[in-house]
Amino acid sequence: MKALAARRHHRFAPVVLMLLALLATGALYAVMTPTTATADTSASAEDIEAGKQLFQANCATCHGVGAGGADEVPSLIGVGAASVNFQVSTGRMPMQASGPQAPVKPAQFTDKQVDQLAAYVASLGAGPSVPTAEMVDPALGSPSNGAALFRTNCAMCHNAVGAGGALSEGKWAPALWDTTPTNLYQAMLTGPQSMPVFNDANLTPEEKRDVISYLVEQREPSVGGLSLGSLGPVSEGLWVFVIGMGILIGFAVWIGAKSS
């Protein structure tokens, strides 16, 4: 123990620790998500090589040549293909400027390039892989169970129907209207940016699909008429003044005015 204590201040200690932590995380993921983590093996060596080229050209500036990250930049070793696919296909990565919030932008890479990048990062360390079409098919999920799960786990940030909401210090939880089922699944699985991770022990793959099913259901038009942004009582209060009082004061002026 003494020897260990002495070496704690060795300058390579953080690196060793990190490697150990990564190994542990990777191992944990391997145990936790056996079905998804092994799916990566399908990636070909050419894809990985192409992905590496893309990574060096577009990502290495921040994430480091070995994808090991830096002070404020997370390491990508062990994040898995799902995380890369989510971040890059939604245009969040590459970021324009470093910060806690990665806004959605038009994607900078083609689907094939995204797959290549994902294959390369996945090759660096085992992590969650991209879900299959069946795993995210909203038709197979239960919207009512998804609604219950969404209320408890997601609505506090993303609003009751996924219209988005504010976080602290200028960050925000995005609206989920346009997010693809695959991206929804990946976000739950990998916990991008401020969002916590919902691993398969927390929300099982079936439960994740239920959540997706609920969110897709919310994209149907509101039964009561225009949804007014689904922002709740504040927007309703605004509209009662703008539309209700607006029209009625207009009528009142007409009633009070002399006829020509």
Binding site: R151, A155, M156, C157, H158, N159, A160, A163, G164, G165, A166, A173, L231, G232, P233, V234, E236, G237, L238, V240
Partner: peptide, 9 residues
């Protein structure tokens, strides 16, 4: 609880 938890105006 959901984001945008507000009472009527």
């Amino acid at each position: 609880v959901s984001a945008g938890a507000q009472p009527d105006w």
